[in-house]
Design a protein around this nucleic acid. Sequence first.
DNA 1: CGGCGGTGTTAATGTGCTGTTAACAGTTGT
DNA 2: ACAACTGTTAACAGCACATTAACACCGCCG
Lengths: 232, 232
Amino acid sequence: MMKAHILYVEDDQSLSFVTRDNLELQGYQLTCCHDGQEALAVISGADFLFDLCILDVMLPHVDGYTLASEIRRRDPAVPIIFLTAKSLKEDRIQGLKLGADDYLTKPFSMEELQLKIEIFLRRRHVVSDPLPALTKLGTLVFDHENLLLQDARGDERRLTQKEADLLRYLLEHKNQVVRRSTILEELWGEDDYFLGRSLDVFISRLRKYVRPDNRLRIDTIHGVGFQLVCPD
Amino acid sequence: MMKAHILYVEDDQSLSFVTRDNLELQGYQLTCCHDGQEALAVISGADFLFDLCILDVMLPHVDGYTLASEIRRRDPAVPIIFLTAKSLKEDRIQGLKLGADDYLTKPFSMEELQLKIEIFLRRRHVVSDPLPALTKLGTLVFDHENLLLQDARGDERRLTQKEADLLRYLLEHKNQVVRRSTILEELWGEDDYFLGRSLDVFISRLRKYVRPDNRLRIDTIHGVGFQLVCPD
DNA sequence: CGGCGGTGTTAATGTGCTGTTAACAGTTGT
DNA sequence: ACAACTGTTAACAGCACATTAACACCGCCG
């Protein structure tokens, strides 16, 4: 299985250092941030979805709760563990309501953190997924189930079924050349001149939709078909 | 949708009563035991798997830890929440190592327990939402059991069974796109043109009913279905 | 370089899907 | 039998979307 990718947001540098060391030693791939804004930028800019987030509640600029709901907006399923100095019941409840999956009170033991991380990661691929299957497309988040395409700023665009199907098809064959005729057979069921022109119209629209991430392109392979080009 | 089946093992009868009442009100199906042996018998005898287990650590005859590993032997994936009087770090860590997924220290608040239950059930998708008799829908209160919808001013509207079923279905999938065909299959049992038009009539009515709260919308996803949009 | 077929893009078009109201039919209770 | 209530069908208006049209452009072939 892939190394689990963990986002860790903590403004206390010395604690952050220790924790990072420990978790990396456990074989996790860590991305550390020191304030909420940085974290948001990292999430928006990443080409992948994190497997788990560990957030300090007290952060400069953007507090942990706000950060958590921003993260949830982009990936409703990712487990979030809050770190907090307070251990008041009301704070815990507030945090759980706002989307935390678990709570750890500072000072915490590394062992306990590791155990809690394992608990959530263990379940990561067991999920039978009625939660929308989200796909990262560069910095965009594509939700085929809900026909939604979200850009790095969090703006959502609603797609039609055909648009979503075509985008998914290209995504399933990203960085590969797909033939016009294959797409038409696959998504339209037949292949004639006019449906071909229809396909062109759709490609044109998708190009507009993916423009927010300028590393994404849909290349034309003249006389053959198209190729969705994207990093990773 | 299936009610979530929860095993609750607790030897303190008065606490057990309160908790049971609360959780059943939330729409969970509870099986209560008062010691470890009874719990083991129940698990062995049941012809279904529990969706979640809540175990007191201090139990007569068989302690919570032993019980937990027995449960795990039968169902390695079921989430287990421990209830404990102690809140020592060593105890928590010990518990987590032995297969607990979360820990709650007595005395605990019912709200926190409910939230923690939800966190684990959500991930298993046993129930995307438990179906409490009363559900808040923005400022409205929806009582599916009694077919009542109450607005912010306290005015009550009586719903028909189908209206209530449809509203509940949308609520169970709020902020998700639900397909016409799925709704029809689920609530009407079949999917043809006329039933589809019937569905439109019902959606039209529900739109009227939820208008008192202008943050609530039922969006049409052309050619696909509907989406109940509501805050939180 | 010149032509032709393939493609990009925008706008117009028409079909099918949806919103809504009202009539209708079936059921229940009186 | 009647009234009240519920779900379905009808009818018509309105809209969204896939398709078609139109025109500009490009790249490959001679």
